Computed example of a mutant assay.
Amino acid sequence: MTSTTESSCTTETVKGTHRFQICQFSYGNVGDNDYIRSGTFRVGGFDWFIVYCPDANCIDGEEYISVYLELMSKYAEASALVDLRLINQVSGEPCTICAENNVPNQL
């Protein structure tokens, strides 16, 4: 007895841009392990937000920041190709700080 099965999956690729501007920031007004979160925005039918942690864990005495994209849509699964950039306030030029393909956490 022979059994034949078949399946397919079609993915949709969409692009979106969200500009998250943090005004009048200073380390004095954000405590240890605190974060600043963007407003929720929608791309590809999913709700997302950006999280900026100015006081990320230190490694070997070096100071780091942490910036990431988080999926807010409940019970959703989505993949995202992320390109996060900081803008130099003097020159106005962007500097890529993260460009990678991650699967966001499911909420």
Rank of each mutant, 00 (worst) to 15 (best):
A78H: 08
R37C: 07
P54H: 00
D55C: 10
Y27V: 04
Y75Q: 12
I97W: 14
R19L: 06
E6N: 13
V51W: 02
E12Q: 14
W48C: 06
S79W: 06
W48P: 15
E93G: 05
T4R: 12
I50A: 06
Y27R: 00
D60S: 13
E77P: 02
T11I: 10
L107K: 04
F46R: 13
G28L: 13
D32W: 11
Y35M: 06
G92T: 08
R37N: 10
S73L: 04
S79L: 12
N105E: 07
I87K: 03
E6W: 13
D83Q: 10
G28D: 15
G28H: 09
W48G: 07
S8V: 01
D32Q: 15
Q89I: 08
Y35R: 09
E93W: 08
R19D: 08
A76R: 01
Q106A: 03
D60W: 13
I87M: 05
Y35W: 07
C58P: 06
G92Y: 03
T10P: 09
D32S: 15
L86H: 10
C58Y: 02
G61M: 00
S79A: 09
G44N: 02
V43E: 04
I22L: 05
S66V: 00
L86C: 09
G31F: 06
V67F: 00
I97N: 08
Q106L: 04
Q89S: 14
L69R: 04
L107W: 11
Q24T: 06
E63L: 05
L81Y: 08
T2Y: 14
V67R: 02
L84R: 01
S7D: 09
C23S: 14
M1D: 14
I36R: 00
P104L: 03
T2A: 08
S8T: 03
T5D: 12
F20P: 03
V82P: 00
F49G: 04
S3I: 12
V14S: 08
